[in-house]
Design a protein around this nucleic acid. Sequence first.
DNA 1: GTACATTTCAAACAGTTGTTTAAATTGACT
DNA 2: AGTCAATTTAAACAACTGTTTGAAATGTAC
Lengths: 213, 213
Amino acid sequence: MTSKQNTQQKILDAAERLFADTGFSATSLRQITGMAEVNLASVNYHFGSKKELIQAVLQRYLAVLMPRLDQEFSLLLSSQKPNDLSQVLSVFVEPLLELNKIQNRGTTLFLQLLGRGYTDVQGHLRWFFNHHYGRTLDKFVLLVQQSCPALPASEIFWRLHFSLGTIVFTMASNEALKDIAAADFNEVVEIDGVIKRLIPYLAAGIAAPLQSD
Amino acid sequence: MTSKQNTQQKILDAAERLFADTGFSATSLRQITGMAEVNLASVNYHFGSKKELIQAVLQRYLAVLMPRLDQEFSLLLSSQKPNDLSQVLSVFVEPLLELNKIQNRGTTLFLQLLGRGYTDVQGHLRWFFNHHYGRTLDKFVLLVQQSCPALPASEIFWRLHFSLGTIVFTMASNEALKDIAAADFNEVVEIDGVIKRLIPYLAAGIAAPLQSD
DNA sequence: GTACATTTCAAACAGTTGTTTAAATTGACT
DNA sequence: AGTCAATTTAAACAACTGTTTGAAATGTAC
């Protein structure tokens, strides 16, 4: 029975949709409990606070995604030769697309939430993420450094953040971009299409030659 | 006298700082009027509403920047040969940096506000911008298409939005990035340093070869 | 100085927010 | 049946939001 799932899950499902669509702070608990058809107070009862609900929504995906990524990174690091940058970036594709198994449109929802996490709130989510998954991120940075030996570490730092901006922004405005692409170019682009368009763009940007001056 | 500037300007100055730091919707009129040391009601008296105040804050920069960009774009379009992509992108540098003449840290503030405009609100700012400056933007897109004749228009559309994401995100988290760069790499990076790092990254990404599959 | 328009001000408005409370309901186990 | 804990519920809480009001203050022109 679809109506017999427990309250916590109904809240998480409604929350992630609303959070992804309109952002964390713009979504009220009354909207969430209204869509989930549960009582307002149940959010605080089951999750403690809105802040903790936000973290729980993200954690549902991160708990699956990050260990997989960590494993793939370790595998690439153990190979002797430095890896091609496109290969390193392509590691993200499959684990991200498998988030669709957790939930309908899981990949899209997660990436939108990630975007919201960076643009909406500054504090607690960044800490939450670094605290839980900082080690995994370090492996990824190391891989990129190995595949771009000509670039100083500081330049890689900046370019990876440039790339994070691309991803986060693209996913946050994903719906709008899809609509424009459909209207202006008669293109139907799904989330995997966007991801595969991103790889060559990001790879070229990160590995761009240093300017002379 | 610094304290004798009129109320409107005091409101605009305070508003742009708070908007840039914490976003439009997260900034309350009471914060703004508190920092500006004016009465709460004066915002509605002078600007009508918070929405119109946001537009006025952006307009102070856009009214200077966009005509300059439009002029530069027209100049490049009138040259017979297609222009190098890096040249096209470099057109932004000087006009952006001249925003520092309008205000202390004007360039940084404007770019942060631009970022907030895309991540914070969806509706009225996008309309406001397209309505006032859509023609100028079209010229820029045309220039990019001319300098990348191998890329289909739809691909350029996606890649320009990827690039917008980079810019917007980088500027929104500019302060945090500067701090990290200073702590981890002993680097002092000002806004013009960030802009000049962006150009080769963006140029390489936009002009990246199409993937085969 | 009188008249008039512009601007400032404190106060209140109606609406929303996240959170808490205490009573009512449900469930499981004896 | 009865007991106890887990859960749900409606109501209220205090704090905050953007906006409006009408009186007070200020500036300007005659």
